[in-house]
Design a protein around this nucleic acid. Structure first.
Length: 471
DNA sequence: GGCGGAAGCG
DNA sequence: CGCTTCCGCC
């Protein structure tokens, strides 16, 4: 019997829109060959649930860093089953799938705690953190996918396909960026951890799992464009495909920056770099929360109308640390892609170390201890505390270079080794990062203040900042 | 509950 | 490949 439930084909690729997207290892996706074949993976799904407040009765971060508890196994299984169109899914099967991650070191079990698992973020997040691997990133492939044939009001891929044209070049989405004429090969321009000392193993302490840093921005512009909420009536109804209002079918450049999204998912030092709206994810009782109504509806270019940042900033005033002005904010709103990067990088060096604790403790009940082993979680690849029996190939010390770290981790995945750093193309601009900054052209309808020249100007400022940082 | 083997599926 | 399904074992 054909399952007509919400399938990945009917939805914009969820992870691509909110997850650390490219912050996850490439192998988390199957991008290159057939974007359309990509399905949400369980750990994406878990993360997705974890970051949504409405599921905290079902699954929530708890305990050590990266540790989460499945409070309602049956419900999680049910949701997963719905998402995967596996009506007979249950926790037994789900847990088998989770166990399947043990070997991959994406997850491991917290022994002695029922239904408690732990993400190995060093594997999941920091591996091959290709911040600038934009054109190749699943995110943009996903965007293409989305643009090309995903969601539609009538759930017909064909129908949606007709709604807007495919991006000029298929597959790699490079058209979204002006990557220069020296566009390297598919993997040649991956940015590795070693490019980001601040992502190094000495990562400063962070204390919270992503969700504790505040939800993914769910205010209008970055709300799930497809209004996914399995708890909402009809969300998973067999008869109701998610209805995407025309206004939500924006070209990919209107979608949130994968970087920003990913930073909101990252451990503290990273998420704290986000603009307050990102890091804090809006107020707790954010009005118009996902809800049944799509707040992006209306056919307006809602993604250009970011909500004001919450008045009460939860993070350590990263905006100030970064000298974010109102003008810049405007730019941020207009062009999250480029700003996310610049802002974040700037923040990393300027502001990192401040505001580590999110004052906005969600879920009053859950108290996270700052002294958790979080610092180890991200640095220790062999972190799998209890499941290390077969640690044959990850026996690198914490002092190992990031280069080898990336490679090592990836080599767990057949042949996806990154090229040696020396093989990377030289930067074409003064700053190695700048050259990789995406140049997302604003849509034609952009107001003057959001014009490309504006963006360039600001990018220049970013570059200056970066120079300072790296000098 | 938790585990991992095995087979199967798309 | 990433599960799903089933299962026996602890």
């Amino acid at each position: 019997m054909d399952c007509n439930c919400v399938s990945d084909l009917l939805l914009p690729p969820v992870p691509a829109l909110w997850t650390p997207g490219f912050a996850f290892p490439d192998w988390a996706y199957k991008p290159e060959s057939s974007p359309g074949s990509r399905q949400i993976q369980l750990w994406h799904f878990i993360l997705e649930l974890l970051q949504k407040e409405e599921y905290q009765g079902v699954i929530a971060w708890q305990g050590d860093y990266g540790e989460f508890v499945i409070k309602d196994p049956d419900e999680v299984a049910r949701l997963w089953g719905i998402r995967k169109c596996k009506p007979h899914m249950n926790y037994d099967k789900l847990s088998r799938a989770l166990r399947y991650y043990y070997n991959k070191r994406i997850l491991h079990k917290t022994k002695g705690k029922r239904f408690t698992y732990k993400f190995n973020f060093s594997k999941v997040v920091l591996v091959n953190y290709p911040i600038l691997d934009m054109a190749n990133s699943p995110f943009f492939l996903a965007q293409n996918h989305f643009n090309g044939g995903s969601a539609a009001p009538d759930c017909s891929p064909e129908a949606i396909q007709s709604l807007f044209p495919r991006l000029p070049d298929t597959g790699r989405g490079t058209s979204l960026f002006d990557r220069g004429s020296t566009a390297p090969g598919p993997d040649g321009d991956k940015l590795r951890l070693d490019t980001f000392p601040f992502l190094s193993s000495g990562a400063p302490c962070y204390s919270k799992p992503p969700s504790l840093l505040g939800p993914y921005p769910r205010n209008p512009p970055f709300d799930y464009p497809w209004s996914f909420n399995p708890y909402l009536p009809g969300a998973f109804s067999l008869n109701n495909c998610p209805k995407l209002p025309p206004g939500s079918l924006y070209p990919s450049q209107f979608y949130p920056s994968p970087l920003q999204s990913s930073l909101s998912q990252l451990p503290h030092p990273f998420s704290s770099l986000l603009p307050p709206g990102e890091a804090a994810g809006g107020e707790r009782g954010a009005p118009g929360q996902t809800g049944g109504t799509n707040s992006t509806a209306g056919g307006q270019p809602a993604r250009l109308c970011l909500p004001p940042y919450p008045g009460s900033l939860s993070m350590g005033r990263t905006d100030i640390a970064n000298g974010v002005t109102l003008g810049e904010r405007e730019r941020v709103e207009a062009n999250p892609s480029s700003t996310g990067l610049g802002l974040s990088l700037g923040a990393v060096s300027l502001g990192a170390g401040t505001g580590q604790q999110s004052p906005t403790e969600r879920r009053g009940g859950v108290k996270q201890d700052l002294e958790s082993d979080s610092d180890l979680e991200i640095t220790d690849l062999s972190d799998c505390s209890s499941d290390n029996e077969n640690e044959h190939d990850f026996g690198i010390g914490k002092e190992s270079s990031l280069v080898s770290r990336s490679s090592l981790v990836l080599d767990g995945k057949k042949g996806s080794l990154l090229p040696p750093i020396a093989s990377l193309p030289p930067p074409v601009s003064p700053h190695p990062l700048k050259s990789l900054m995406p140049l997302t052209p604003p849509p034609p309808s952009l107001p003057p203040s959001l014009s490309p020249s504006m963006a360039l100007h600001d990018r220049h400022r970013e570059a200056e900042t970066l120079k300072m940082i790296h000098s």
